[in-house]
Design a protein around this nucleic acid. Structure first.
Length: 507
RNA sequence: GGCCCCAUAGUUUAACGGCUAGAACACCGGCUUUUCAGGCCGGGGGUCCGGGUUCGAUUCCCGGUGGGGCUGCCA
C-alpha cells in the first residue's frame, strides 16, 4: 500500500512555524516513501473561522516549496479537501455509530452542561467528565424514553451525538515515535462527535476523512496524544483499519517554559510565522521569516532539525537531501526549544550557497525598501556578493550593502579614527593620489597601502583600519580592495577628501 | 488535581548494553603582522536522582524529581 499522509490545519488563524514543521515532516515522509502529501482544511469550527487564514496557510507552504499532491486548488480523487464542503457525509457516519450502539444523542444545553460541571467542581471534582457514570444523570438517548428522544429530534430540539466510551477498558496504540501508549477508558470523556450546528467535531471528521482518503500515517503534534484513544475507539467501532500514528514533539519557547506561542516568539525577537500575517480584525501586522530575510532553503533546514536528526554529523541540508534521509524513527521524543541564533546561522549557510542569480532574486523584494532611489542591480549584486558572509539574513546583507553606498557620518568617522597626525594625513594624501592616478585594481590595493604605510612609518594594520573608518565609518567589513571597488574610485576620493578637510577645519 | 508524554553540555542533538560520551549553535582563548564584529585553530562545559538487571549501563526495568501536553458542542 502506498503511503498517503495529510497535513490538516484549521483555518482558525495563520499558520505558525509549529504547524509548518508538522507539514514539513509529513511532506518529507511522503516524498521519502514515494507517497502522496495531502492538504486538508479542517474548517469545522465556523465560530472561530478567520478570513484569510486558509490563504495564509497555503501561501506559507508554497513559499517553502511544500507542495501538496492533493488538496484545495489542486484537487485529487478523494475530494473535496475542505471539510466544510464535506459536511453532508459526517452525519451519516455519526448516526451509523448510534445505530451500532457506540454513540448516542444528547440534548443537554450548554447551560445545563455548565451547571453540571459547576456542581461537580464544587463537590471536589477538578475536571468533571461526561462519561459512563455521569451520562446516566444527563438528558440523552440513553436515559430518555425512546419516544421522547424521537419527539425531541423531530421537534427540532438541538442535540449533539456523543461517543459512548466503554467502561474500564484498556485502549492502546502503537506510536511510531514513542512506542506503545495506553489509556484506561474510564479516563475518557464521551466526546461530542457531531455538534448541534450540523458540523462534526475534529474527532469524527478526522477519523472519517482519514479513512475515506486512505491515509496510511497520521503524523501530527504531540498535543493530540490524549485524544488519540477516542480515535482508536472510533476506528474500532467503524470496523476500519487504523492508520499508523506518529506524534511529533512540541516546539518549545526559547526559555523552555511551555510550547512556542506568538507572544513568546515576539518577546524573544523572532517571527512565529513563515510569512507575514495581517490580522483582518485588528489590522495588526506580524512579519514572518520571509520578511526578516530568511530564505525558504534555510527555514526548511531549521525546522527539519527541530526534533529530527539525520544519520550524518552535519547540519546543512537541501530539501532533496532531507527527503533522502528522512525517517520517522529518527524523530526525537522530547520537546525542542527554538534557538533563533542557530536558525540564523543555518540560514546564513544556505545564503552562502546561493547562486548570484538566486541571491539577487531573494533580495529583489527588499530593494525598494533599502534603496528608495533605486539602484543598478549589477552594482547591488556585486556589493552583496562581497558582504554576504557577514550577514545571516537577506535583510542584514542588504543593510550592510546599503551602508557601503552611503557616505558615513563625519562625526562617527572622527570618533572611530584610530590615529591622526601629520604622517597619517600625508599617507592619506598619497593614497588619494594613487587612487586618482590608476585604474582601481582590488588585488593591488593591499600592497599599495603597505608601501604607503612604510613610507610614512605607520603600522600597516592600523593604517588600513584608518582607511576603512574614513571610508565607511565602520571598524570592520570586507577586505579593503573589494570595498574600494564597490564604493568606486570617485567616491573613494571624495570621502577621503571630505574627512581630510573636516579634520583641517576643526583644528 | 487527574491522565498522558518527556528527561545527554546553556540550546539542538549523536550513541539503538561495551571506545577518553561525538557534533553544531552560543561562550571563552589563540592565530591571522592584509584591518575584523570576518576566517582558521583550540578550550571549558553533559548522561536529573535513587534503586535494581548485567561481567558491563546514557542505553533495559522500577521508584522519585523536574519539565511539558491534555483535561470544550476548539482544533
Amino acid at each position: 500500500m502506498s503511503v498517503r499522509v495529510r497535513f490538516a490545519p484549521s483555518p482558525t488563524g495563520p499558520l505558525h512555524i509549529g504547524g509548518v514543521r508538522t507539514a514539513l515532516f509529513n511532506y518529507l515522509f511522503a516524498k521519502r516513501n514515494n507517497g502522496k502529501f495531502i492538504l486538508r482544511i479542517e474548517d469545522t469550527d465556523r465560530s472561530r473561522y478567520v478570513p484569510g487564514a486558509e490563504d495564509h496557510i497555503k501561501e506559507s507552504l508554497k513559499w517553502l516549496g511544500i507542495q501538496w499532491d492533493e488538496g484545495p486548488d489542486v484537487g485529487g480523487h478523494y475530494g473535496p479537501y475542505r471539510q466544510s464542503e464535506r459536511v453532508n457525509i459526517y452525519k451519516e457516519y455519526a448516526e451509523l455509530l448510534v445505530k451500532k450502539g457506540h454513540a448516542y444523542y444528547a440534548f443537554d444545553t450548554p447551560e445545563e452542561l455548565e451547571a453540571f460541571r459547576d456542581r461537580l467542581r464544587k463537590s471536589g471534582v477538578p475536571n468533571p467528565q461526561y462519561n459512563s457514570i455521569t451520562r446516566q444523570y444527563m438528558r440523552n438517548s440513553l436515559t430518555l424514553p425512546a419516544e421522547e428522544v424521537k419527539r425531541l429530534i423531530e421537534s427540532g430540539t438541538p442535540y449533539v451525538i456523543r461517543i459512548k466510551v466503554p467502561r474500564n477498558r484498556e485502549i492502546k496504540f502503537y506510536d511510531v515515535i514513542r512506542g506503545w501508549v495506553s489509556f484506561n477508558s474510564n479516563e475518557l470523556d464521551d466526546k461530542v462527535l457531531f455538534k448541534s450546528d450540523g458540523f462534526p467535531t475534529y474527532h469524527l471528521a478526522n477519523v472519517v476523512d482519514d479513512h475515506l482518503m486512505e491515509i496510511t500515517h497520521v503524523i501530527r503534534g504531540e498535543e493530540w496524544i490524549p485524544s488519540t484513544p477516542i480515535h482508536v475507539l472510533l476506528y474500532e467501532f467503524f470496523g476500519w483499519e487504523m492508520p499508523k500514528f506518529a506524534h511529533l514533539p512540541l516546539i518549545l519557547r526559547p526559555d523552555g517554559k511551555g510550547k512556542l506561542s506568538k507572544r513568546a516568539a515576539i518577546e524573544a525577537g523572532f517571527p512565529i510565522y513563515a510569512i507575514k500575517w495581517t490580522d483582518p480584525k485588528t489590522k495588526e501586522e506580524n512579519p514572518g521569516f520571509r520578511e526578516i530575510g530568511f530564505i525558504p532553503e534555510g527555514l526548511i533546514n531549521v525546522l527539519a532539525l527541530l526534533g529530527w536528526h539525520p544519520p550524518e554529523d552535519r547540519e546543512i541540508y537541501t530539501i532533496e537531501e532531507l527527503i533522502q534521509y528522512f525517517e520517522l524513527e529518527r524523530v526525537g521524543k522530547s520537546g525542542a526549544q527554538f534557538n533563533f541564533e542557530k536558525a540564523k546561522w543555518i540560514n546564513q549557510q544556505h545564503i552562502l550557497k546561493l547562486s548570484p542569480e538566486k541571491l539577487m532574486a531573494y533580495a529583489r523584494p527588499f530593494i525598494k525598501e533599502f534603496f528608495p532611489e533605486g539602484i543598478e542591480e549589477s552594482k547591488l549584486l556585486e556589493a552583496m556578493l562581497v558582504m554576504r558572509e557577514r550577514g545571516t539574513t537577506i535583510r542584514e546583507i542588504l543593510e550592510l550593502t546599503k551602508s557601503v553606498f552611503e557616505r558615513p557620518e563625519i562625526e562617527q568617522v572622527i570618533n572611530l579614527l584610530p590615529e591622526w597626525n601629520d604622517n597619517v594625513k600625508a599617507a592619506l594624501q598619497d593614497f588619494i593620489n594613487y587612487i586618482e592616478s590608476e585604474e582601481l585594481d582590488p588585488s593591488q590595493i593591499p600592497t599599495k597601502i603597505k608601501d604607503i604605510a612604510k613610507k610614512w612609518e605607520l603600522k600597516k594594520g592600523k593604517f588600513m583600519l584608518t582607511i576603512r573608518v574614513v571610508l565607511t565609518g565602520q571598524k570592520a567589513g570586507p577586505p579593503l580592495g573589494e570595498l574600494l571597488k564597490i564604493i568606486g574610485k570617485n567616491e573613494v576620493v571624495n570621502r577621503l577628501k571630505l574627512v581630510l578637510n573636516a579634520k583641517e577645519e576643526r583644528k
